[in-house]
Design a protein around this nucleic acid. Structure first.
Lengths: 226, 226
DNA sequence: GCGGCCCTGTCAGCAGGCCGTCAGGTCGGA
DNA sequence: TCCGACCTGACGGCCTGCTGACAGGGCCGC
């Protein structure tokens, strides 16, 4: 974990460097915003520790500017300004946490760890074949990156085919998946959906298509491309 | 945004519920870990506010167990235990932040907002898509820079859609975010709000619109522009 | 306290799209 | 060529979602 420390009090900076190093962090320390500025342009930090009262400017202003271009690096503000309004302003400007001097090294480390543990993006399962994708949670179908509208039954059908892409899926399986045991439905209903889905995929220039295996079922595979 | 509050002090709980509601959160409040336990099993909360000294167990133990199975819900610990070792232990157990009683409601809200900012999502307090912005601090909506009035429910709805702008947000998620356990509501209530918000956005000449995904939910996306 | 306004949930009517069915055509294998 | 399997365009019932109207309730100003 690489950390950028911006702190102009030399003794405190030394202390923090020591503590962070013992905590397993790699530290780059600077005492001016200008140096910090060029550092963030060249190195991809995991975490930034920022003092507010610095010789060449206010850390809060810098943070505001920084947040405008780089959104995802956690920033922990370390400062003597302990007032409520300062803390609220700091948090709302884009600080992920706020630590008021004086503090114990253990607490600094704990807060660093906490900030780094922040949740990542929620994972969604995406099925894909060729340039066709289906997000199983949002039920969105996309071809070559652009979304297309598909009604529910066709989406369900596509899902089953995608899950066994390249293999023949028997009619019976498709019927079972699309319709509960209760719904009795003409065999033709499935064929109708296949037909409509084929049309939709080819209209969207998909590079996979649905092949018929007579007497058995269907399979999804890459279209022959010239 | 749906919040689980676990706090056994009745007066404090009422205060926090009020403050959070004014801050645009939907709150489920319980005074025992047992109830919290079953709540987290059924609802997908955006944030958990946890008191430590509870009648039926220690919040810290519960948090430890909770973290073992669910890693990605932010937890903000609210407690009277202000000692350093307590704070460090709390953060290392899996709390994302630590707030010591007594505290101001403004600070609580600011910390909630900070914790909810996920890496990759918007890091400022202002959510935006197209020319529509929502300041989560003041709960003000603006289109192309000029503010428009939107009632609370519509603002909440817009917030959820903005946080997942471009992605489909399932109906169930929207229902969960907008309404707590107690509020039982016709599915049509959501549709009514969507309708009203659509009207409001288009009246204000917003360049994003709410798109319906039949059988699934809604998504916010840039309107087709000529 | 009280009147009025706005918010918000409910209802009902309506529109549009989905989906199962049918019928007629096409294709493949024997 | 014949037959069975499959394709596809047309159609209508039905269901989902949209929206205007309305009523209850809370909040604010007088």
């Amino acid at each position: 974990m690489r950390v950028l420390l911006v702190e102009d009090n030399e003794r405190l900076s030394a202390l923090m460097r020591g503590g962070l190093a013992r905590g397993g962090f790699t530290v780059d320390a600077f005492d001016r915003l200008e140096d910090a500025e060029s550092a963030v342009d060249t190195v991809d930090y995991d975490l930034i520790l920022l003092d507010l009262g610095l010789p060449d400017g206010d850390g809060m202003d810098w943070l505001k500017r920084f947040r405008r271009r780089s959104r995802d690096v956690p920033v922990l503000v370390v400062t003597a300004r302990g007032g409520l309004t300062d803390r609220v302003a700091g948090l709302d400007t884009g600080a992920d946490d706020y630590l008021v001097k004086p503090f114990e090294m253990d607490e600094l480390l704990a807060r660093c760890r906490a900030v780094l543990r922040r949740p990542g993006a929620a994972l969604s399962t995406v099925l894909a074949a060729g340039n066709v994708t289906l997000d199983t949670t949002s039920r969105q179908v996309a071809v070559a990156g652009s979304q297309i509208d598909a009604p529910r039954r066709e989406t369900d059908l596509l899902e089953v085919l995608l899950r066994r892409s390249g293999q023949v899926v028997p009619r019976t399986v498709l019927d079972e998946r699309l319709y509960g045991f209760d719904d009795e439905v003409t065999p033709n209903a499935l064929e109708a959906h296949v037909s409509r889905l084929r049309r939709r995929l080819s209209d969207a220039a998909a590079d996979v298509s649905i092949h018929t295996v007579r007497g058995v079922g269907y399979l999804l595979r890459l279209s022959a491309s010239p």
